[in-house]
Amino acid sequence: MKLREAISTLGPDQAINTAMLIAQQYNINWNDGIGDVFYVIANDLERVPGNIGGNSDNESSAIEKWIRKYEAGRASCASMRTSNLPGTIADPIIEQIIGARISRLNRNDLNLITYAHRLGMSAENILGLILEEYLSVNLRDFGWHCAWGETVKSVDFVHESGRLLQIKNRSNSENSSSSAVRNGTEIEKWFRIRANTGQYMWESLNFICETTHLSEQEFSNFVRATISSNPGCLAIELSNPWI
Rank of each mutant, 00 (worst) to 15 (best):
R104D: 14
L119K: 08
M121P: 00
Y115G: 07
A78S: 05
R107L: 14
Y134A: 00
M80C: 07
A78K: 00
A123W: 04
E124M: 07
P86W: 00
N125T: 14
L119G: 07
S122T: 07
A78E: 03
I67L: 09
D109R: 06
I113Q: 01
I126Q: 11
T114C: 03
A72E: 12
P92C: 12
L127C: 08
A78Q: 04
L131S: 12
R107C: 01
M80W: 07
D91I: 15
N108D: 10
S79W: 02
L85Y: 02
N111G: 09
L129A: 08
G73Q: 05
M80P: 04
L127N: 09
M121Y: 02
G120L: 09
A123F: 08
S122Y: 10
I126P: 03
N108C: 00
S83T: 04
R101L: 15
R81S: 05
N111I: 09
P92F: 01
G87K: 13
H117N: 09
R68C: 10
R107I: 12
D109M: 01
S103N: 15
N125A: 14
R81C: 11
I126D: 01
D91T: 15
G99Q: 02
M80F: 02
R74V: 06
E124T: 00
G128Y: 07
L131K: 10
E132R: 12
N84D: 13
I67D: 01
G87V: 05
Q96V: 03
L129I: 14
A90D: 14
M121K: 09
M80V: 00
E133P: 08
A116H: 06
A72L: 07
G73W: 03
P92M: 11
R107S: 07
I130K: 01
G120Y: 04
I97S: 07
G128H: 04
R101H: 08
N106W: 03
Y134F: 05
R101C: 09
I98C: 02
R101Y: 04
M80I: 04
G99L: 07
N111P: 00
R68H: 06
N106K: 06
T82C: 12
S83Q: 10
G120M: 09
Q96A: 06
N111C: 05
A100L: 13
A100E: 10
E95W: 02
E71T: 15
A116W: 00
E95N: 15
C77F: 09
A72C: 07
I93V: 14
